[in-house]
Design a protein around this nucleic acid. Structure first.
Lengths: 147, 147
DNA sequence: CGTTAATATCTTGTGTGCGATTATCTAAGG
DNA sequence: CCTTAGATAATCGCACACAAGATATTAACG
């Protein structure tokens, strides 16, 4: 019988919020891989493309704010997307410091092929939809609380 | 006025569970840094140490199962912890394939200094404790559902 | 106009993550 | 024994992630 009065261990993995958050993020990312491989995208690239499908012709900094990545991560990632032919990068003519990221036709077309990805992932998650919605809301609340 | 009948966009970042999960994980990790720097630990190293503080003298594979990391990530991470003097690695005498990871005295002592970290982080999260508990439960459910 | 501060991106260095491969060792069968 | 299948880490290659610093441009101010 476990002793109910035993000391609470603040460093136990089972008492941490950070640990399941960290593990869940990587586990979910791993599950995207088989669906993203045919598109020639990694998971961070997929997230970046989703942001661009919503709104392109944006500066690197604006894009980074949207996906919570800084330019040190985005610059090489965008260069790889450019090499793939999905995006183009050009200096702004009005502000030579800024780089404008836009979708190529191929990048725009890729969206059609990506449309089925969310439902493929949904099938991998045997979780009540209402719970998934609740989880998403709590995660967004956490992000807001950390800002 | 937004049109309530407009098409649902499955690829909108705002409709994804993966995106806030990915962002929240990195944001939270970032918030650990100022508290982990004085300990000489990165966030994944901290997680690994927490697992070892609970139970050391374990094989690399067992440790990896606990923290959801494979040997390609753990081996160099453990070598850095070894270089720091926090852990030791030795081949098992009974099974020469296995490497046993154990804490050094210095590694064990580090736990005392780390005891305050969880409460420091808790202070950073302006979130109802019951919501945090709920979030943790939902994350664990998600991990289980993906397994 | 010239100097300085602010902005925006890029580069470099360190440390993960993980797929794929390799090397070593154990165990099981013949 | 010997071969072989399975187990276990380590290694390699590529792609993030981010701090810190470098570079280039713009804006602000006297």
């Amino acid at each position: 019988m476990p002793d109910e009065t035993q000391d609470f261990n603040p460093l136990s993995l089972d008492n941490q919020l950070c640990f399941p958050l960290y593990a869940a993020s990587r586990e979910l990312t791993r599950h995207y891989k088989p669906f993203l491989d045919p598109l020639g995208l990694t998971y961070p690239q997929y997230v970046t493309m989703m942001a661009l499908w919503e709104h392109d012709e944006v500066k690197v900094g604006e894009l980074g704010e949207r996906v919570h990545l800084d330019s040190a991560t985005l610059t090489p990632l965008l260069k790889r997307l450019e090499a793939r032919g999905y995006v183009s990068r050009r200096r702004s003519t009005t502000d030579e410091r800024a780089v404008i990221v836009s979708l190529t036709n191929e990048g725009r077309d890729l969206r059609e092929k990506a449309l089925s990805v969310p439902s493929c992932i949904a099938n991998c998650i045997s979780m009540d939809p209402s719970e998934a919605v609740q989880l998403k809301a709590l995660l967004e609340k956490l992000i807001g609380s950390l800002a």
